[in-house]
Design a protein around this nucleic acid. Structure first.
Length: 203
DNA sequence: CTCTCGATGCGCT
DNA sequence: GCGCATCGAGAGA
């Protein structure tokens, strides 16, 4: 897998924690009105199957979680708190509902456009580190909404992930997931992976 | 910097 | 009707 090549479906056909860690350092690309908006993935979380109380698949298949039950390499975008979107990539084989939530990016391409999308209605003067440092923020910066739900990341020219320099294992920091409300296990399982030194992490 | 709180729409019981 | 894989404003230190 060379730099700039699109990640193949095989990449996603693994357990979500494994895919999550492997996604660090890869480049998420969104083509909006012909322009590439892209960032280096620096924070992700794994959500694994019906046994994970924090997963949207925890109570079996529903219209919303259906996409998680499908084949790997597809986008799962959901709407939350009445105003934000979150982007996931579906992992593992069909029938095994799991996904990786993209939580933060380091902006790389189309930064000026991201600033305009994020802050056209807000008071100016916010630092670039707030551009894509959070699941809702990055979706807004890249113009990702439910319109992108179900898109095939392995075949299409709107939303995809390219191979890039990975992250050395020594730079990866593993913690509990952020913002999950479930039981003790769900709140403490170490399924959040970050590039430790990055100033572009959430919270 | 830290903490608290309200916004706001929808998926699901 | 309840609760949510969040964000930004505002207050205080």
């Amino acid at each position: 897998m060379k730099r700039g090549e699109r990640l193949p479906r095989d990449f996603y056909a693994r357990p979500p924690a494994e895919v999550a860690q492997a996604l660090l350092g890869m480049r998420l690309v969104r083509v909006l009105a012909g322009e590439r908006l892209a960032g280096r993935i620096v924070e992700v979380e794994a959500y694994n199957g019906e046994d994970d109380p924090a997963s949207h698949a925890a109570r079996g298949p529903t219209p919303r979680s259906q996409i998680m039950y499908g084949p790997p390499g597809f986008a799962y975008v959901y709407f939350i708190y009445g105003m934000h979107h979150c982007l996931n990539v579906v992992t593992q084989d069909e029938g095994q509902p799991s996904a990786v939530l993209i939580r933060a990016l380091e902006p790389v391409e189309g930064i000026e456009r991201m600033r305009r999308i994020r802050w056209m209605r807000l008071i100016r003067g916010r630092p670039d580190r707030e551009l894509t440092s959070g699941p809702g923020r990055l979706c807004q910066a890249l113009g990702i909404t439910r319109d992108q739900n179900g898109m095939d990341l392995c075949d299409g020219n709107v939303l995809f992930i390219e191979a890039d320099e990975g992250v050395p294992a020594g730079e990866v920091v593993v913690t509990a997931r952020i913002g999950v409300r479930g039981n003790e296990w769900a709140r403490t399982v170490p399924w959040r992976f970050t590039v430790g030194q990055s100033p572009f992490l959430s919270r």
